[in-house]
Amino acid sequence: MTDYIIFDMDGVLIDSEPIHQHIIYEVFQQQGIPFGKSYIETLTGMSALPMWEKVKCDSGHPATVEALVQFHRRYFYDRLPEIQMPIVPHVKEVLSLFQSQGKHIALASSSARNQIEFFTQQVGIHHYFDLMMSGDDVEYSKPNPEIFLKVAQWYGLPPEYFTVIEDSTNGVKAAKSAGMHCIGFQNPLSGGQNLSQADRIIASMSELL
């Protein structure tokens, strides 16, 4: 474990993947896109634009990518007031421990910045992070390493100084492509993610204590 830790958010800090996947499934139904849960699991870790580019390409849907992104975004925000995201067990203890050890903690998520702000405030962990890098801050989504390299650039350090904690296939690929150490968190709520490229795999955040 290095002194600079980068956490993904969805599926690592908050157990949001089932909610996101269910909303995507509802959007698919409303848009007449004939894909189910197993397909949706392959989208885990991707930000909105590349996700909908892939869905449009795979489904041949006639709407523009921009229209699909906006429909999904409006649908999600209409539902937001009723959503109470559960925090992943032991996350607060881990963040508190790392902070007490003098580690530098960042968040790098493909989610939109306002979602990151909303949910980290909602579960009471916002104050632990030096930096929050969002899907709005990058051109390319995971598995591209851009988001992690931007975190390293912000700190002014080479990638090998960082440990990334990820729960998705795309996230692990991005971390390793960035040249960073990676811990794969096997969250059963994130679906059948392949974390085999990670340097270490954990089944509970308590293992980091």
Rank of each mutant, 00 (worst) to 15 (best):
M1G: 05
T2Y: 11
D3Y: 08
D3F: 10
F7M: 09
F7V: 04
D8T: 04
D8C: 05
D10A: 02
G11C: 09
V12M: 05
D15R: 08
D15H: 07
D15G: 09
D15L: 08
S16C: 02
S16E: 10
E17Q: 09
Q21L: 08
H22D: 15
I23S: 00
I24H: 12
E26M: 10
E26Q: 15
V27D: 11
F28D: 12
Q30C: 03
Q31E: 14
Q31Y: 01
P34G: 15
F35V: 10
F35R: 14
G36I: 11
K37C: 01
K37A: 09
S38M: 00
Y39S: 02
I40G: 04
I40M: 02
I40S: 01
L43P: 07
L43Q: 11
S47C: 05
L49M: 08
P50T: 01
P50Q: 03
W52T: 11
E53K: 15
K54T: 15
K56I: 10
K56V: 07
K56D: 12
K56Y: 09
D58P: 07
D58I: 00
P62C: 00
A63M: 12
T64W: 11
V65W: 07
E66Y: 10
V69S: 10
R74C: 05
D78T: 04
R79G: 02
L80G: 07
P81Y: 12
I83F: 15
V88H: 04
P89C: 14
H90M: 06
V91N: 11
V94H: 11
L95W: 13
S96I: 06
L97H: 13
K103N: 12
H104Q: 15
A106V: 10
S109F: 03
S110I: 00
S111R: 08
A112M: 08
A112H: 03
I116V: 14
E117W: 00
F119L: 12
F119W: 14
T120H: 10
Q122T: 09
Q122C: 11
Q122D: 14
V123G: 13
H127E: 15
H127W: 03
D130L: 14
D130V: 12
M132F: 11
M132I: 11
M133V: 04
D136L: 03
D136E: 05
D137G: 05
E139I: 08
E139H: 12
S141M: 03
S141P: 06
N144C: 00
E146P: 01
I147T: 03
F148D: 02
L149P: 02
K150D: 04
V151Y: 15
V151Q: 13
A152L: 04
A152M: 07
Q153R: 06
Q153E: 15
W154N: 13
Y155M: 08
P159H: 04
F162G: 10
I165E: 05
E166Y: 05
D167T: 03
S168M: 03
N170P: 04
V172Q: 00
A175H: 02
K176P: 05
K176V: 00
S177P: 02
A178C: 05
A178H: 03
G179K: 06
M180P: 09
I183Q: 06
Q186R: 15
N187F: 06
N187G: 11
G191R: 02
G192M: 01
L195V: 07
S196I: 05
D199C: 08
I201T: 06
I202F: 09
S204I: 07
S206M: 11
E207Q: 09
E207F: 00
L208M: 07
